[in-house]
Write a protein that binds this DNA or RNA. Structure first.
Length: 405
RNA sequence: GGAGGGAUACCCAAGAGGCUAAAGGGGGCAGACUGUAAAUCUGUUAGCGACGCUUUCGAAGGUUCGAAUCCUUCUCCCUCCA
C-alpha cells in the first residue's frame, strides 16, 4: 500500500518537474503529494495574476501549462486575480515604479484574462478569486500586524529592490507591501503550492514564511523559467515586440513561430506543448546530426500551438498558406484588395495613405532598397501606373491587390 | 531643512557653442544568401513631392549671426548630510 503511494507520488513528481527551474523545498513537495494521494485530497495550487496586461502571450502560458498539468493530475487550481494588489503594481523585475491602475481598468483586464486563460486551463477544475475579497476588509491594525512579520533588511534582500536602491531608482514604501499582500493571499487560501516565474521567487517565499507565521503548513514554491521571446535573447514581452500572443490569428502565430531562433525550438516544445519529453529529446538529437531540418521541427511546433489556441483545422490552413508564400515564393490568393480612383500615383505617398508604410519617407526608403515588387517583379521607380488586378508587395509580408474603381 | 548629481531619438548611451537629424550598441525594417520571418553579411532607422525646408536632446523663457551644448525659472528623479 505505502509503496504504491510512493510510486504514484514519484510518477506525479516526474511530470511536475518538467521544465521547472526550482521547487522549494523539493522533498516537502514529494511529501505533500504522498499525503494527497493517501488521503484522496487534491493539493491546492495557487497562481496570482496581476491584471495589468490585458493580452497574454506564450510567456504567460508557461505557468498556465504547469497548472494544467496539476489539473490533469487531479489537483485543484486556484487563480487569484490581483484586483486589489494590481492597484499597487508588482515591483518584481521592474526598473521603475509601476503606475497604479483604476478599478475599471483592472476589471476590464480581468475579463480579458479569463477568456484567454481557458484556452489552456480546464474551466471546470479552476477556482477563481479576487484578492479584494479578503484584502479590502483588513484594517490598519491588521495591516500593521502583517507588516510586522517581515523586516526591511529582508525586503532589501530582494534583488530588484536592492538593484533599484543601488542604482538610485525610486522605491515607493507601498511597494514593500506587495509581497506581503501576495503572501497574505496564500494565507487566505491556505495554498499548498504556489507557482510563479523565477522573478517571483522572493514573493513566493514570503508567502511561505507568512503561512507559517499564521500557523498553517507552509506552501511550496514552484518556479518556472521566464520564456525568451522570438529573438531568443530577451524575455518575451509585449513591449519588446518579441511575443506570440495567444489571441494572434493562426497565420500570424505560424509566422512568428517560424521566426524563432533554432536554439529555442526544444525549449518551446518543453515549456509550451504537451509533447512527451522523450519525443523532444529525439528531435534534439536528430537536429544535431542533421536528420531533422529545424524548419520542420518549427512547423510541427507551430501546428501544436495553433491547435491549442485555435483549432487543428486552422493550423493546417496556416501551414499551407505559409508554404505557398515562403517556400514556393508564390503570391498568396487571399490578399487584401484596395480600391483606388487615381491611376497615376506617387508610390511613397500612396503606400503611406494606404497604411502600408508609416511615412512617405519610409515609402521612399522601401523603393530605394528594392523592397517593392509589382506582380512579382522588383519595382524601383517612385511613380507608378496602377491597373486593376495589379499586386503590390512591400517587403516579404505585405501584399495588396489593386482595383480601379 | 541643507549640499551636490542627473533627464539626449524605440531602448541603452556619447556629445559640453557652428563640421549635429545628433557617435556607438541593442532592437526594428530592407536587401543578398537559404532551410524559414533561422544564422551570416550589407544597407537603413524624424517628417515633408525633398540635394532644400520643417520639427526634435525633460518644460518654458532668454543670451547669440548661430544652442542638445551658455543663462533664468519650473517639473521629475537620485545621492549625501540633518
Amino acid at each position: 500500500m505505502e509503496t504504491a503511494i510512493k510510486d504514484k507520488a514519484r510518477s506525479q513528481m516526474e511530470q511536475i518537474e518538467r521544465g521547472v527551474i526550482e521547487i522549494l523545498p523539493r522533498d516537502e513537495m514529494i511529501k505533500k503529494l504522498e499525503k494527497s494521494i493517501r488521503e484522496g485530497q487534491p493539493l491546492r495550487i495557487k497562481l496570482g495574476l496581476d491584471p495589468t496586461a490585458p493580452d497574454i502571450h506564450l510567456g504567460h502560458t508557461v505557468v498556465l501549462n504547469k497548472l494544467r498539468q496539476f489539473q490533469d493530475l487531479g489537483h485543484e487550481v486556484h487563480l487569484i486575480i490581483g484586483d486589489y494588489t494590481g492597484r499597487i503594481g508588482d515591483p518584481s523585475g521592474k526598473s521603475e515604479t509601476r503606475k497604479q491602475l483604476t478599478e475599471e481598468e483592472i476589471m476590464a483586464n480581468a475579463r480579458t484574462y479569463q477568456e484567454q486563460i481557458y484556452k489552456v486551463l480546464d474551466r471546470n477544475k479552476t477556482i477563481m478569486h479576487f484578492n479584494s475579497d479578503w484584502l479590502k476588509d483588513l484594517n490598519l491594525m491588521d495591516v500593521l500586524k502583517l507588516a510586522a512579520k517581515y523586516t526591511v533588511a529582508r525586503m532589501m534582500e530582494r534583488d530588484d529592490f536592492e538593484k533599484r536602491y543601488k542604482e538610485g531608482l525610486p522605491i515607493g514604501v507601498h511597494e514593500f507591501m506587495y509581497p506581503l499582500m501576495q503572501g497574505y493571499d496564500s494565507v487566505a487560501l491556505q495554498a499548498d503550492v504556489e507557482l510563479g516565474g523565477t522573478d517571483q521567487k522572493f514573493n513566493l517565499l514570503v508567502g511561505r514564511h507568512l503561512l507559517r507565521e499564521y500557523g498553517y503548513e507552509p506552501q511550496i514554491a514552484l518556479m518556472m523559467p521566464i520564456l525568451e521571446g522570438t529573438d531568443g535573447v530577451q524575455k518575451m514581452s509585449k513591449s519588446l515586440g518579441n511575443y506570440i500572443g495567444v489571441s494572434d490569428d493562426p497565420y500570424e502565430m505560424f509566422g512568428k513561430t517560424m521566426s524563432i531562433s533554432d536554439s529555442l525550438i526544444c525549449r518551446y516544445y518543453e515549456l509550451l506543448t504537451r509533447v512527451p519529453m522523450a519525443e523532444i529529446e529525439a528531435m534534439r538529437s536528430q537536429m544535431n546530426n542533421g536528420a531533422l531540418n529545424p524548419r520542420d521541427a518549427k512547423i510541427k511546433l507551430a501546428m501544436e500551438l495553433i491547435s491549442t489556441f485555435h483549432s487543428p483545422e486552422e493550423a493546417t490552413q496556416a501551414m499551407e498558406r505559409f508554404k505557398l508564400v515562403y517556400s514556393e515564393r508564390d503570391i498568396p490568393d487571399d490578399i487584401p484588395e484596395i480600391t483606388v480612383s487615381e491611376i497615376d500615383v506617387w508610390l511613397p505617398k500612396f503606400l503611406n495613405e494606404k497604411g502600408l508604410v508609416d511615412s512617405t519617407s519610409e515609402g521612399r526608403r522601401m523603393v530605394k532598397q528594392g523592397a517593392v515588387k509589382v506582380n512579382g517583379d522588383k519595382f524601383e521607380q517612385e511613380d507608378i501606373h496602377l491597373e486593376t488586378g495589379m499586386v503590390i508587395q512591400i517587403g516579404k509580408r505585405k501584399f495588396v491587390k489593386i482595383t480601379i474603381g
